[in-house]
Design a protein around this nucleic acid. Sequence first.
DNA 1: CGACGATTTGATGTGTTTCAACGAAGGTGG
DNA 2: CCACCTTCGTTGAAACACATCAAATCGTCG
Lengths: 241, 241
Amino acid sequence: MLAINARNAVPHYAIGNLAAHGDPIREGQDPLHAVGVERRYAANQTVFQEGEPNEHMFRVSRGVLKIFKTLGDGRRQVTGFLYPGDLIGLGAGVSYAYTAEAITETALVSCRRSKVEDLINRSPAVARWLFSVASTELTAAQDQMLLLGRKTAVERVTSFLLNLAERAVLRGEDSDRIHVPMTRYDIADYLGVTTETVSRTITRLKALGLIRLCPNNCIHLVDADRLTELSEDEGELSRTG
Amino acid sequence: MLAINARNAVPHYAIGNLAAHGDPIREGQDPLHAVGVERRYAANQTVFQEGEPNEHMFRVSRGVLKIFKTLGDGRRQVTGFLYPGDLIGLGAGVSYAYTAEAITETALVSCRRSKVEDLINRSPAVARWLFSVASTELTAAQDQMLLLGRKTAVERVTSFLLNLAERAVLRGEDSDRIHVPMTRYDIADYLGVTTETVSRTITRLKALGLIRLCPNNCIHLVDADRLTELSEDEGELSRTG
DNA sequence: CGACGATTTGATGTGTTTCAACGAAGGTGG
DNA sequence: CCACCTTCGTTGAAACACATCAAATCGTCG
């Protein structure tokens, strides 16, 4: 996942940490922005829905969004939370495979897919960039599959919190006081559990003194090392808890 | 790392289902093969392990493989089964995020990542192809997240069988007599359940007359329509079952 | 202040896991 | 070619982590 250093002379759609991919796309050279249009969305507003024709790619300038898939009977799976710098609409297919919805007030740079193709044709650097972004997403998706398929509730929640913290660092934010703008319901649908389980697990972590809930949807990670242990080995909880 | 059974006659590296990506890379023009080397692997042989330096990309010529991630205590998540035409090693990062292991006897075309970069630089067509393959993988990964996070055991197993059937069609094989070379254990680790649950579910589908087990790890999908219903809505089972 | 959604907490239920055992299949070596 | 052994697959009984149902409390905002 890509992110930016928000404070900057260069506009907030700058690319940021792409250097991590060894790619020559640098801050202030967002290739999508050159050919795209910025659009704004209110909290809870839908950007596009699963099944609609897949005509645009988006890049998050400001705000947080979620993307999710839905089953006929209403069951949802949130497949990602998107932060500034992230791309939406990478997936293949003639129609979107998921719904995208703003969690906070949001600004996106929108770009027709045909223009993206043009960019790839004209610039190998852009091609490598997009390929590397998709590859990074793929790696993250595999981590999430491991979480959904094999991790316990405690491991899921701690993994989630640490993941938010990691991404906050990439955006140049504080890593142990993380902002959590999504609801328990969204988190539950992301982690493949219920809101009650998320709530109980957070309560438990709080009771263990590993985290602290602050006002404004903020969570203070008091003992990140211990949380890291819990994110990979539930057994730890009984041995020391 | 790579145990190579060197015997290179250079046969079946045709591209197969790539046309599905609507991209101008066609049969007999595998861009990887031009710069790669074919290697062979016995069943159960490891191609590379999670954590090893990520230096190669592979394309399956013949055989079936699995890729999986492992937790410290041995829990596994199979994140994909790979068939001829599929690419291995798309993921980002300096080291492989998962282990790749041959299920059947296998032939792969191996290609250094640096050569792949060169190809992207030289050919926008290859760049678009790789991007579209990665995008397709991403879409599949999201489907799998929905399965792992929200589907019941019956839905998981039926989704899996139908998915195998779909991919068989893309390879030009029969769609209702599918070859299932992986063990119940592999399937279980792919679907995020136990071998017992997979076994019981298959038994149940068999009892309902929806599938039939044939010799040689072959499963006959007797009622694909009904299976499709079951793959998206478990409730169906009680209504009609 | 009042109200509605979000969150937390409690009591109970259940789908799947875990533990256990057995039969079948597939190598391996004598 | 046949005992032997290991792995795989199936089935059964019991246990458990999480879901479900229910309700109180918190928090936010008109």
